[in-house]
Simulated assay, not measured.
Amino acid sequence: MGRLVRKIIVLLLLVLITLVFVFRLDYFNVKEFSIHNLKRVKKDDIIKILQQYQNQNILSINTKEIRQKLLENPEIEDIRITRRLPNVLVLEIYEKETIGLIKYLNSYIEIDKNGYVIRIEGDLPKKTIVFEGLKVNEAMVGKKLDVEDHLLLDEGLQVASSLKNFDVFRKFDVDHVVVLLKNINNVELKMDKLLVKVGDISEIDYKLKLLKSVYDKLPKRIEGTITLNSNGIATFSPNTEEEN
Rank of each mutant, 00 (worst) to 15 (best):
Y206N: 02
G224F: 08
I66F: 09
I49D: 12
R83M: 04
H150V: 06
D173R: 08
Q158G: 12
L153D: 06
R24L: 07
R221H: 05
N185M: 14
K220N: 15
L91T: 08
L85I: 07
L153C: 03
I204S: 01
K43T: 03
R24I: 02
G100Q: 05
L163T: 04
V178N: 02
N114E: 14
N73G: 11
F28V: 02
L13N: 05
L71Y: 01
I204M: 06
F23H: 06
H36K: 15
V159A: 05
N239Y: 06
D44Q: 10
I79A: 00
D44M: 07
I46A: 02
L211C: 04
V147Y: 09
D167N: 13
S60M: 07
L25N: 04
L16W: 08
S237H: 00
T98A: 01
V147W: 02
S237T: 05
V117I: 12
L11V: 09
P74M: 15
E203M: 05
V141M: 03
K39G: 14
V177M: 04
H36F: 10
I120L: 12
H150S: 03
V88D: 14
L105V: 00
F169P: 07
L145M: 11
A234V: 10
K193P: 00
V196E: 11
P74F: 12
M140C: 10
A234C: 10
A160W: 01
V141D: 08
L208S: 09
N62K: 03
I233F: 10
L181A: 00
R221N: 13
L59R: 11
N37K: 15
E188H: 09
T63D: 05
I58W: 03
E138N: 15
P86I: 00
T128R: 14
E223A: 13
E241A: 02
L181G: 01
E242C: 06
Q56Y: 09
P238F: 02
L163K: 04
G232D: 05
K164P: 01
N29W: 02
I93S: 00
I8C: 12
G122R: 15
V136A: 05
G199W: 14
D78M: 09
F33S: 09
G115F: 13
I204C: 03
K113F: 11
R84T: 00
L211K: 02
D123T: 09
N114D: 12
E155Q: 13
G115S: 14
L38F: 07
D26T: 03
I184G: 04
E75F: 02
R40A: 10
I49E: 13
V187M: 05
Y206A: 01
A139T: 07
T227Y: 14
F33E: 13
Q68P: 08
